[in-house]
């Protein structure tokens, strides 16, 4: 079983056991527009919550992707480097960025549930 939680910066983390799959929400990709470049962290990198974890660039601009939780990067989706448009096509599926092994699972409590995130989007 898995649970997806969201940050106010529109990152999602889909938690499966002690590992979370991190990417950007459908709303985030729609706001960015066509993604043309992504810079992913090195596997093994230790990230603290809120740290810059990746960069995603559209035709217009570069945006940072922040770590929604603290932990170690255990895998990155290097297929995105050749096909960054996957982030637009399937942001919460094939367009994932990285997997993070959670060092402090209680941080998930600071993130929003799917329902709360929908309410948050409606308020923007």
């Amino acid at each position: 079983m898995s649970e997806t939680r969201y940050s106010k910066d529109h990152e999602y983390i889909r938690v499966e056991g002690d590992v979370g799959v991190v990417g950007i929400s459908d709303y985030a990709q729609s706001q960015l527009g066509d993604v043309v470049f992504v810079e992913l962290p090195a596997t093994g990198k230790a990230l603290s919550k809120g740290a810059e974890a990746a960069v995603v660039e559209s035709v217009k601009a570069a945006s940072e992707v922040y770590a929604p939780v603290s932990g170690e990067v255990t895998a990155v989706n290097s297929a995105l480097e050749k096909a960054p448009g996957t982030i637009n096509e399937d942001p919460q599926g094939e367009g994932w960025f990285m997997k993070i092994k959670l060092s402090n699972p209680s941080e998930l409590g600071d993130l929003m549930s799917e329902a709360d995130y929908k309410t948050y989007l409606a308020s923007l």
């Binding site: 527009g33 066509d34 043309v36 559209s58 035709v59 217009k60 637009n88």
Partner: peptide, 12 residues
């Protein structure tokens, strides 16, 4: 208008 629904790449 910065872009229409098809997006900047397709418009370009």
């Amino acid at each position: 208008p910065v872009q229409y629904p098809t997006g900047i790449l397709a418009e370009h």
